[in-house]
Design a protein around this nucleic acid. Structure first.
Lengths: 88, 88, 88, 88
DNA sequence: GCTTGGGGCGTTCGAC
DNA sequence: GTCGAACGCCCCAAGC
């Protein structure tokens, strides 16, 4: 056997390559995500160093997020109303 | 009062500006994070469309992540030992 | 052995009794929950029978819930601000 | 307009009242459900405080539920067979 | 059957 | 360092 994996032949060559590509793309994205989260941590740490209360900052961000979510839902509800009465 | 916020004067102008900047940076980062996570969803959706089992794919990614973490730990331990005996 | 379970002796008599009590309380609560959820289903079914759009009803309920959550968070933020400046 | 809602006239008075009633009933039931779930959380927290493993407790409850479902299915099957042969 | 919402679980982060 | 709370992930069920 040319490969050290016992079950390698379950997928043909093309599928194996495709699988590798998918895994790599996901892992690259996870790196990106980790980097972003790290940046956020740095921003908060910096803010804390300037005397801001991180807990309050987080709450503000959360609150604004809720606002946005609510707005979006309201718009969705309007769309729903419109579709319920047969569109515009 | 030149602002519609009742408690605006608790922070001076510079601090207010700084606060806004911080909030905006965090929110920008949250957007980035959401975008990345969305990309991941798309990759998985695409993979699913090609017949791959998304659950298994996630498991593979997780396992590889653990592997990497383990490798890093081992390397750190090796470095520790090496430094303990005065290097290579 | 006075019991048909092989691992019964892992817990002493008091603990066994306590365990039974806990399980029974949880199961009673699950029944309550199921009953409540069933009632909700009935309300929606009834509403549907009167010509109301259940999907819209659900969205309204969700929206009002978000409203309440947001209000509570805002109050929590105010409390946080107050505590941050040393109370009232 | 006697109401602050712009789209109020889409439903007549009776329907509006009915709608309010429905929403209120649902919201009341959601409160009930939340209360029940909160009670469950308390039971588990209490159990945890006594040294029980909450995850295991949940598993037990789930298993017993499956058991009960299985018993009910079997009984239903027995009834079916019985009715098929004209009762006992 | 596919997608969307809800519940459960593990992880992470901050508080004490 | 332990604790609890918040967040993200995963699974399941229900609706379209």
């Amino acid at each position: 056997m040319a490969d050290d994996s016992a079950s390698v032949d379950v997928l043909n060559g093309a599928a194996q390559t495709r699988l590798r590509t998918i895994i790599e793309r996901v892992e690259r994205l996870e790196e990106d995500k980790a980097a972003v989260m790290n940046d956020m941590k740095e921003v908060f740490a910096e803010a804390k160093g300037e005397g801001f209360d991180v807990k309050i900052l987080r709450k503000i961000v959360r609150l604004r997020k809720q606002d946005r979510a609510k707005r979006l839902e309201e718009e969705a509800l309007i769309d729903l109303y419109l579709s319920a009465i047969g569109g515009l």
